[in-house]
Every structure is written in C-alpha cells, then in structure tokens.
C-alpha cells in the first residue's frame, strides 16, 4: 500500500527534485553528520586538552598505516562497485547489478575481517584496550561505531540481494531507488572512514 497510494515514492517531487526516499536518506545522513560531528569534536577537544605528553606518539599508537590504508582502498573500491550496481539497474541489467552488490558485500566483509583480525584482536592481546588511554578509547569507539555502520550496510545489501530482490520484478524503478539510497548511505560510511583514517592512523 505504502508504495501505491503515496505520491513521490518513485517520481521526483517537482520542487525538491528528489523522491521521498532520497530526501529522507539525505536527512538521515545530515543527522549522521551531526553524530560523527559530535564525536569528532570530542576528539578535537580531548586532544587539545590532553595534558602534556599523554597523547601517544605514532609508535605508541601501534596503528599501521599499511593495514589502514589497505582497508581504505577496499572501501573506496566498494563505493565504486556500489555505483556500478546502481548504474546497471538503471540500464536494466539486474544480474550484473546483483553481482556488483555481492562484490560490495564481499569487500565490506573483508574490511571488517581485516579490522578485527589484524587490528582489534592483536591490540587487545597486547593490552591496548579502550581503557588504556583516551586515544585508544576514541580509537575503539569511533572505529567500532563505524564498523557498526558497515555491518548495517552489509545487512541492507544482503536483503536486497536476497529476499528484497523480488521488488525488482514488481516495481523495478522503486527497487533501483532503494539501491540508490543504500548507495548514498554507503558513500557516507566511506567518507567517515576517509576522515577517521588520517586522524587515527596518521596524525600522531
């Protein structure tokens, strides 16, 4: 019902130029900006206010820019595959779009796996826990929250690959729009990482 009765679920609104789902996604992302904005401000305030010599140096932080950089690369590629999925839907090529979605999910899962196995696990093992100091507290909180966003994205994409794919048959335009919104979210999650990577890995 919700798809049929309400206007602007598929076609763009003449004034805003967006269909409702897209406007909603942008608004949601605005609130996400405030969420991560709040955390980034906390990072800045805590770092500026840190007593002399308590902020870890690059060596003390034990964060390898190589792993972080590789993960960054993974996410950037996944953004591209996400766009490819949407573009293929636009060109009415559902199987190819689905393939690109699967690749995106694989890249995202790889990101999480690397993050956990090469970073969280050994760090925790070495006694570098959130309680170690403010930097590690921030590192774990920010990356875990970001990881949660990645995980949420994976769940959504799996839904559209599997049970949600039926929508393509009944209302392909609507399906394409949903993938576009998922893509917007996915780019945002990547963007957050683009900010996280330097402040955690490079700027110590």
């Amino acid at each position: 019902m919700s798809a049929g009765v309400l206007p602007y679920t598929v076609e763009p609104h003449p004034v805003t130029g967006l269909y409702s789902g897209k406007l909603g996604t942008w608004l949601f992302l605005a609130s996400e900006v405030m969420l991560f904005g709040g955390l980034f401000s906390a990072y800045i305030l805590l770092r500026v206010g840190a007593p002399e010599g308590t902020w870890p140096t690059h060596e003390e932080a034990h964060l390898s820019w190589k792993i972080g950089g590789f993960n960054t690369l993974l996410l950037i590629i996944s953004s591209v595959t996400m766009v490819m999925a949407w573009a293929n839907l636009k060109m009415n090529n559902f199987p190819k779009a689905r393939m690109y979605l699967i690749v995106t999910v694989i890249l995202a899962s790889l990101f999480l796996t690397l993050k956990i196995s090469l970073e969280y696990y050994p760090h925790w093992h070495d006694g570098l826990k959130p309680s170690t100091n403010v930097f590690f507290g921030l590192y774990y909180t920010l990356t875990a929250l970001h990881g949660l966003h990645i995980f949420g994205g994976i769940v959504v994409m799996l839904y559209f690959i599997g049970p949600g794919a039926g929508l393509w048959k009944t209302n392909p335009e609507y399906y394409t729009n949903r993938i576009e919104c998922t893509g917007l979210y996915w780019h945002f999650v990547d963007l957050v990482w683009i900010f996280l990577f330097p402040i955690l890995y490079l700027m110590n």
């Binding site: 996400e32 405030m34 969420l35 991560f36 709040g38 906390a42 309680s131 507290g137 909180t141």
Partner: peptide
C-alpha cells in the same frame, strides 16, 4: 530533533564506554 539529538547520542555512547569499557573520556 534531527540535528540536535545525534550529538547526545555520541555523548551517550562515550559515557557508555566510560561506564562499561573503562575509558576515560
């Protein structure tokens, strides 16, 4: 609501970490 609540969510997450994970934000 859209723009003011998320910073509290951030603050809440930080306080939760302080309480549960022993961080010291």
């Amino acid at each position: 609501l859209l723009l003011a609540f998320p910073p509290l969510e951030a603050a809440g997450a930080l306080q939760l970490m302080d309480r549960v994970a022993g961080t010291s934000f």
